[in-house]
């Protein structure tokens, strides 16, 4: 399915966000990427559909190598990858329906897109998808009239209507309160199961990650430092991801010692 091989990203500023990272996602598994902020989680997700251009490495989606694609080939491949964004990224002044249907733009001619002349099958699907995400009846509301949780549901609908082969999810809950976060995660994983597609999800809440994921990937400073089933993510593994191998107890001890030295 998705195969990431030795991917590197060096930003213009010289920051090495990804240092030759490899991983796979297959079947209909839900893989969550965890790690401290700045570890390269978002960069990894964004490199896969090339919203951020990877510097080196290969990314395969089935039989297509993504990093070498030209503009129109890239657009065709992007249709197969649904993305759900951190800040929802809806076009606020368009209606919910238009936001959902914009997931079908890759299949439409520009002229039809301009005239908002959507395929009636797509419209029917959009209504169906809105029902699935629990947003029946709001299709004529403008996106900026919705609450955060509702907006993220529209975001999910926009990705789902693409009929993607994989869902790329970038911090879906960071702009939501804890209760809504759980609802959104429930919905997201349920839809992925129903549609039988894998999900690669970047998330910073460890408890959400372990609760919903089949597999967890840990990033630290642009490198993959942990990979395993969700229940293998024990205290030791978290120390590696978040504290460079130091256990919390060791770290506290070391800190206490430093403070003591400083006091002398």
């Amino acid at each position: 399915m998705l195969h990431v091989k030795d991917v590197e990203k060096v930003y213009d500023s010289g920051d090495r966000a990804l240092k030759g990272l490899s991983m796979d996602v297959s079947g209909n598994e839900i893989v969550s990427i965890i790690g401290p902020s700045g570890a390269g989680k978002s960069t990894l997700i964004r490199c896969i559909n090339r919203l951020t251009e990877p510097t080196a490495g290969e990314i395969w989606l089935d039989d297509t190598e993504i990093t070498g694609l030209s503009g129109s080939q890239l657009r065709e491949t992007r249709r197969d990858m649904g993305m759900i964004h951190q800040e929802f990224n809806l076009v606020e002044r368009l209606t919910v329906m238009e936001n959902v249907l914009s997931g079908r733009l890759g299949y439409m001619s520009t002229w039809d897109a301009f005239r908002r002349n959507f395929d009636s099958e797509d419209i029917a699907t959009a209504r169906e998808v809105l029902r699935r995400v629990g947003l029946e009846g709001v299709e004529n509301d403008r996106a900026d009239e919705l609450s955060g949780g509702q907006r993220q549901r529209v975001g999910i609908a926009r990705a789902v209507i693409q009929r993607p082969k994989i869902l790329l999810v970038d911090e879906p809950t960071s702009a939501l309160d804890p209760e809504t976060s759980v609802e959104v995660m429930d919905l997201l994983t349920e839809i992925a199961r129903e549609d039988d597609i894998p999900v690669l999800i970047n998330i910073h809440e460890v408890d959400l990650a372990t609760e919903y994921a089949d597999r967890v990937v840990g990033l630290s400073d642009g490198e993959l430092v942990f990979e395993g089933a969700a229940d293998e993510l024990d205290e030791r593994a978290q120390d590696i991801i978040y504290r460079g191998g130091e256990s919390r107890a060791e770290r506290d001890a070391a800190k206490a010692e430093r403070t003591q030295h400083a006091g002398e």
């Binding site: 209606t95 329906m97 419209i123 029917a124 004529n140 549609d195």
Partner: peptide, 16 residues
Amino acid sequence: MATQPGSVDGNWERPT
């Protein structure tokens, strides 16, 4: 996908 296009309204007009 569990969608039956025939059963759902396939018309939508943008509110003005």
